[in-house]
Design a protein around this nucleic acid. Sequence first.
DNA 1: AATCTATATCGTAATATTGCAATATTAAAA
DNA 2: TTTTAATATTGCAATATTACGATATAGATT
Lengths: 110, 110
Amino acid sequence: MGASKTENFTQKQNEIAALMKALGHPARVAIIDYLLTVDTCICGDIVNELPLAQPTVSQHLKELKNAGLIKGNVEGNAICYCIDEETFAKFQNFLSEVFGKIKIQKNNCC
Amino acid sequence: MGASKTENFTQKQNEIAALMKALGHPARVAIIDYLLTVDTCICGDIVNELPLAQPTVSQHLKELKNAGLIKGNVEGNAICYCIDEETFAKFQNFLSEVFGKIKIQKNNCC
DNA sequence: AATCTATATCGTAATATTGCAATATTAAAA
DNA sequence: TTTTAATATTGCAATATTACGATATAGATT
């Protein structure tokens, strides 16, 4: 079909999947990368940092925003993009649960 | 187009994106969840745990396997699926780098 | 007001993903 | 050796994603 059957999974599973999916494209990883390396918000500079056309970058930014991973506030005629630390914290919690379980499992496996 | 322009991003960005993408579907999150809760390998039991038809589950398992997140060894007429701890460790390293940077950035932002 | 700059939206083509029925495969069990 | 059980593969339909040119929008600058 092409559409995920989200209704049959837990909310948590869907939330994790949505965050992972949002980061499941190198351009979006690169955007997060860049926001982290500059160590502050970016106002009007992201398009030049990526090997993609402006509408494509805009689309990727929109997806990151929808997933809650970044925030964008209008700043004059540019837009200031930031990491949304709250969502990342949530993501990190999900992940530490998962990675925690892996350690416990160690050597219990074939 | 529909195809990602992977050649224009770093290997690391592509690797992270591939791992994220593999976990970017609730069914695949559920599979990993299940492998973790049973706390050992699963031999012939995964299909019944998911609200999806057998070929669909098989396909999702294949994707997790391609991403290196799980391993499958033939065990009689069933197949034993396990978490691939090595890949998860790599993934965890990538992520701790990212999350580490976020902490440093804190309060540097608009 | 006209222009520039940054970003978003629309429309659309190419490709990928999701899901499943039907069928194949493979090894154990009868 | 026929049957059963578990899993994979094929083929296909529905939908989603990716990318970008063209165009729109909105605020700053001249």
